[in-house]
Design a protein around this nucleic acid. Sequence first.
RNA 1: CGGGGCGUAGCGCAGCCUGGUUUAGCGCACCUGCCUUGGGAGCAGGGGGUCGGAGGUUCAAAUCCUCUCGCCCCGACCA
Length: 566
Amino acid sequence: MRFSDMLIPTLRETPSDAEAFSHILMLRAGYIRQLAAGIYIYLPLGFKVIEKINRILREEMNSIGAQEVSLPALHPAEIWQSTGRWYEIGEEMFRLKDRTGRDMCLGMTHEEIMTWLAAREIRSYRNLPQIWYQIQIKLRDEARPKSGVLRTREFLMKDSYSFDADDEGLEKSYRLHADAYHRIFSRCGLRFYMVESDPGMMGGAASHEFMAPSSAGEDEIARCSACGYAANIELAASNSRKMEMMDWDLEEVYTPEKRTVEEVSNFLKTAPQYFIKSLLLISDKGPVLALIRGDAELHEKKVERILGKHRPAHKTEVKEILGVEAGFIGPVNHNVRIIADPVLKEGVYISGANKENYHLKGIRPGKHFSAEWHDIRLAKEGDTCPKCDSPLEFEKVIEIGNIFKLGTKYSVPLKAFYLDERGEEKPVVMGSYGIGPARIAAAAIEQNHDKDGIIWPVSIAPFDVEILPLNVGDKNTVDIAEKIYRELKEKGIDALIDDREERAGVKFKDADLIGIPVQVIIGERNLKDGFVEVKDRKTRKSERIKLEETHEHIMLILSHMGKEGT
RNA sequence: CGGGGCGUAGCGCAGCCUGGUUUAGCGCACCUGCCUUGGGAGCAGGGGGUCGGAGGUUCAAAUCCUCUCGCCCCGACCA
């Protein structure tokens, strides 16, 4: 491809409304343009990258026996009503009416439609298992689109769905996907982890996420490098730092105007981990007192899994229910339901006395109050692995893929049944699996860039090689460049030739920005002695190569970089 | 949805507070010519704006007031 024929509108300056590296660089290097909040145009270079990623997705999905289909993006409401999600999902779903007034929506995911299809077309155990996938637009009216292509309202997704006769089958399909996903992300040149995750509204038994570490990520994971434990922070279990057992007797201590753990801890000169932090929550079934150690933080999502929808109690409610203001509440001497972090099972603590200006010292959980024990605490720096007790590491990550075991959540309401060997009708057991190609591209940039621009992994770079004839006014330079271009093309190497009448500096800057992994620099200086220069974008190392060895050398470099088929 | 910020040429910005020498400006990009060709050259000439939109105040509005739309950031939310 010729640079002069291609739309590659690079920008010298950073557009003011971009912040994430991937966003800035995709904009500056001419990969994308923004149409509206969370809605993007892919320019030729950007589109090529997405297509490269999609090719890898197709190869790997096909290799596990998945079949590509294409489902509509426009859905009738009834099908979403039958699984209940029409009502459960809020404003995030784009809803509209057709000309006859019929309720419709834009597809934010395709469990319903895939299951609808399965309900019609799968009749017998002989038809199972099946894996169907598509690479399709999803539409979600995100509350806050952000970070360029990382969180958008319209985006491409490779989504696949497995249909099995039983849990054992699902287990196998799930495993196939997990393995395929590992191959996909490795081939795309990403650093990533597979972590345990919360199935959330998706429902089902288990799920994992594939996470690419990056400071631009919205999620956080906890990870143990010793035993391999890794989980989304929303789910991560951990062991808190151990503490000494005190031999305090139970007594009320006067703590005037000291309400927060920090205040009381300073006042009594006792470390926060000797305190019990008590938080009154209001759930659908009434008030619940949540207890965590003084140095910990409550994790909303974990609490929600136990209590369902809930909220913190208002000041007046605290007073009504416990008879004292929030700063002095504690677990002893009342009948409010208590859920507590298991770390509190051992130890002797200080907490509110449920009496104005007093705290209670010497509380022994189990003896002075009873509670339901649940992990409701946010794992944090300094905590150790729940499996092997080694220190946990925490990292910000971009979610690039996820896999869910759905079970029969969708097959039952949508009546996707099959007849087994004995003629018995059974619901199909499902899984669903997603990957966002744009997030792969963005994560690749987040993980591979420098101050001058993008450094693409070869596998997903828009071109393998960029040829830079520095002075197109020099006939020899042009002839050699064209010759190399032709030779590479014949070898199946996708090359971009910067044939523009620009000065060398401009070409160098643009080449670094765009980030094609190999640069072939053709200047009169080297040409005189029969050499060209081949430069690695990443290491910036360049070698003078004899003209006649150029394309062999390029093939060699590309294969070192992991280009397939070289 | 709550909090903050910003809308002036394709991009980056100044001007606004204190209305009138502003015919709305600067850098880059763009067009023409000359010159130049190994890290975003130089010179000369040129094109491009209903100052996000609507209403108002005023003799006079990019500038002041009201409403509105859009975009970004933090948070909540996120099948």
